[in-house]
Design a binder for these strands. Structure first.
Lengths: 165, 165
DNA sequence: AAGCTATGAATGAAGG
DNA sequence: CCTTCATTCATAGCTT
């Protein structure tokens, strides 16, 4: 990505990924636009097809869409493991971001209840999600791997360095 | 959001925003999700209402979104992936063949160090490689799975097997 | 260029 | 918690 390599000359020992204010602003606007459009399209469609709840089942984290949208592409009962809907994901991320470290049992229940309004979910799912999210977030802390000049600037995550096992 | 206040003043006159890789990844996903949702909703709606103007530009309420926004987004939504050099691959295969089942973290570090002499590589890459290699090797052996999934995306077939274990 | 396959990476869940 | 596994997603290169 462009601004990443634009970064490195800034300061002596400091290697960072950088976006300019302008780039940041553009990104923010694009996201905001998408969010609004999605919402409005969903509303619009809902009012057009008064039959079913479209918004409930769009799963697109790693791109999974409900039959309603992909119109007869695959069967409904095709997934065994839980996959968060975008709505659920967004809420989860938000909660995670707020830094309330370890959601207690009770908190998990609350979250589960809230999320179940946006799709099938269990407390175990929520619990697992936070566990994984925490662990993987920690593992990714830095990314200062030199980049192969011939090729990719791939995103980097480090293996945890707890060798005291 | 979080990284907005992470803005730093790196150099006298220069104000930049900084993002970690993780934040970058989150952003990337968020945008990608929105992009896809929008696309599908637009398609869906288009097919429902036989009118045609939606693709050319979406007018919703008081806001208008130029479809070109999405096409300019590819730098953000695309992702690169590591590709082993032939030398690295050879070494990896050899290590795998030696049957040291599960390379420990330390072993991974060693391997990474060795392989980095032959090209850019990270511990995560190595770790992933072994994980995939193990899994797919196992899957090949069992190539007749009793329970047939509705949609196996891979037809595993025997190829010249270099695994002379 | 379009489609296909091999394969790197992401992630929910299980086990310790 | 941390590690590992199974499954799935996404893409780099071939093949046509």
């Amino acid at each position: 990505m462009e601004w990443q390599k634009a970064a490195e000359e800034l300061n002596g020992g400091m290697f960072v990924k950088v976006m300019t204010d302008e780039q940041m602003e553009v990104l923010r606007k694009q996201i905001a636009v998408y969010a609004i459009i999605c919402q409005q399209l969903v509303d619009l469609h809902k009012s057009l097809t008064a039959q079913n709840d479209l918004a409930a089942g769009v799963r697109l984290g790693n791109m999974y869409c409900d039959p309603l949208i992909t119109s007869g592409m695959h069967k409904i009962t095709s997934r065994q493991r839980w996959t968060p809907t975008p709505m659920q994901l967004q809420i989860l991320e938000r909660i995670f971001e707020q830094g309330t470290g370890n959601p207690s049992r009770i908190r998990i229940q609350e979250i589960t209840t809230e999320l179940s309004q946006h799709g099938q979910i269990s407390q175990t799912n929520v619990s697992n999600w936070f566990q994984n999210r925490r662990a993987r977030s920690k593992r990714k802390q830095h990314s200062a791997t030199p980049v192969n000049d011939s090729e990719s600037d791939q995103l980097e995550k480090e293996i945890g360095d707890t060798d005291t096992k």
